[in-house]
Structure formats: C-alpha cells, structure tokens
Deep mutational scan, measured.
Amino acid sequence: KNAAQIVDEALNQGITLFVADNRLQYETSRDNIPEELLNEWKYYRQDLIDFLQQLD
C-alpha cells in the first residue's frame, strides 16, 4: 500500500487525514475509527506525513 491509497481509503470512509505541527491528524464525523485503519496510519505515519505535506 502507499500513502495515496491510505488517504483515499480514509476519505471513502468519511475521514480526512492532514498534518498539523508535523503530526498526522484526522477529522471525521464518525463515532469511531476502525482499529485496522488506526494501525495502518501508525505503521505508515511518516509516509503519510510526507505525502500530505507535498500536497500543501
């Protein structure tokens, strides 16, 4: 998997990933985040941060 796929997957589930103060953050109206997504975000944290910062 790559960062773009993970960001896309999150968006499809109503979750927006973004970077604030060099930390990976998310916004969602969901009550909870599936644990497998959280684990994936932790595992790919630096890739996601790098990818999202390139988009800014």
Rank of each mutant, 00 (worst) to 15 (best):
N22V: 03
D50Q: 10
A4L: 07
I6N: 02
N39F: 10
A10R: 00
Q53C: 09
L38K: 07
T28A: 07
Q53H: 10
V7N: 03
E40K: 08
Y43D: 09
S29R: 11
L55D: 11
T16D: 06
K42D: 15
R30T: 08
Y44M: 05
W41L: 08
Y43M: 14
R45S: 14
Q25N: 08
N39I: 12
A4I: 06
V7C: 04
E9N: 07
P34K: 05
L55Y: 12
D50F: 11
Q53S: 15
N32G: 09
E9V: 05
L24H: 00
Q25M: 15
T16P: 02
S29W: 09
L24Y: 01
K1N: 03
L52K: 00
L17P: 01
Y44C: 02
I15F: 09
V7H: 04
Q46F: 07
L55F: 12
A20N: 11
L55M: 13
W41Q: 00
D31L: 10
A4M: 09
Y44P: 01
Q5T: 11
N39C: 06
N32Q: 12
I15S: 01
Q54W: 09
W41N: 00
P34Q: 05
W41H: 03
L38R: 07
D47K: 10
Y43W: 11
Y44L: 03
L55R: 14
D8S: 15
N39H: 09
D21I: 03
E35W: 08
L48Y: 01
E36S: 11
F51V: 02
T28H: 06
I49P: 00
D8H: 15
N32A: 10
N32W: 13
N22C: 07
E40L: 12
R23H: 11
E27F: 13
I49F: 07
E27P: 02
N2D: 11
N22Y: 07
L17V: 02
Q25K: 10
R45H: 15
E40A: 06
I15N: 01
V19N: 02
L55P: 11
Q53P: 04
A10F: 03
A10K: 00
E35A: 10
L38F: 10
V19F: 14
R23Q: 15
Q25V: 10
Q46S: 08
D50Y: 11
E27N: 12
Q13R: 09
S29E: 15
Y44N: 06
A20D: 10
L37A: 03
Q53K: 12
D47C: 05
D47W: 05
D21P: 01
S29A: 13
I15C: 03
Y43K: 11
Q13T: 05
Q5P: 01
Q46R: 08
Q54I: 09
D8T: 15
Y44F: 07
Q25F: 15
T16H: 14
D8R: 15
N39E: 13
S29K: 13
R30W: 08
N2Y: 08
A10Q: 01
R30Q: 10
K1M: 06
G14H: 06
A10M: 03
E9R: 08
L52G: 00
Q54A: 13
R30P: 03
T28I: 03
F51T: 02
D21K: 05
Q54D: 11
Q54S: 13
N39D: 12
L55K: 14
I6K: 00
V19T: 05
I6D: 00
T28Q: 03
T28N: 04
R45K: 13
P34M: 04
Y26E: 01
L52N: 00
V19L: 10
L55V: 12
Y43F: 12
A10W: 04
W41C: 02
Q53M: 15
R23G: 13
D47L: 11
S29Y: 11
Y26I: 06
D47P: 08
A3T: 05
A4S: 10
V7Y: 14
A10C: 03
A20W: 10
L11I: 09
Q5A: 07
L52Y: 03
L17H: 02
D31N: 09
P34V: 05
A3P: 13
A10D: 01
D56P: 12
E35Y: 08
D8M: 15
I6Q: 02
L11K: 14
L38G: 03
Q46K: 10
G14I: 03
L48C: 00
W41R: 00
K42S: 14
A4C: 06
E36R: 09
L11R: 15
R30S: 09
R23Y: 11
N32H: 14
L48Q: 00
I33Y: 02
L52R: 00
N39W: 12
I15Y: 09
G14K: 05
D50C: 07
E35T: 10
G14A: 04
Q53I: 14
I49G: 00
L37W: 08
K1D: 02
R30G: 08
D21T: 03
Q5Y: 05
N12W: 08
L11S: 09
Q46N: 11
D47E: 14
G14M: 05
D50R: 13
E9W: 07
Q54M: 12
Q53N: 13
Y43I: 14
Q5R: 08
K1E: 03
R45A: 15
E36H: 11
D8I: 15
L38A: 06
G14W: 04
S29L: 10
A10I: 03
G14P: 01
I49A: 02
T28M: 04
I49Y: 07
Q25A: 09
D31M: 06
D47V: 13
Q5K: 08
N39K: 12
L37E: 02
D8N: 14
L17R: 00
Q54T: 13
E36P: 07
N12Q: 14
W41T: 02
E36M: 08
D56Q: 13
Q54F: 09
Y43Q: 13
N12G: 12
A3Q: 02
Q5N: 06
L24C: 03
A10E: 01
I33N: 02
Q54H: 11
I15K: 00
T16E: 07
D50T: 12
F18D: 03
L24S: 00
G14Y: 05
D31V: 10
L24I: 07
E9D: 10
R23C: 10
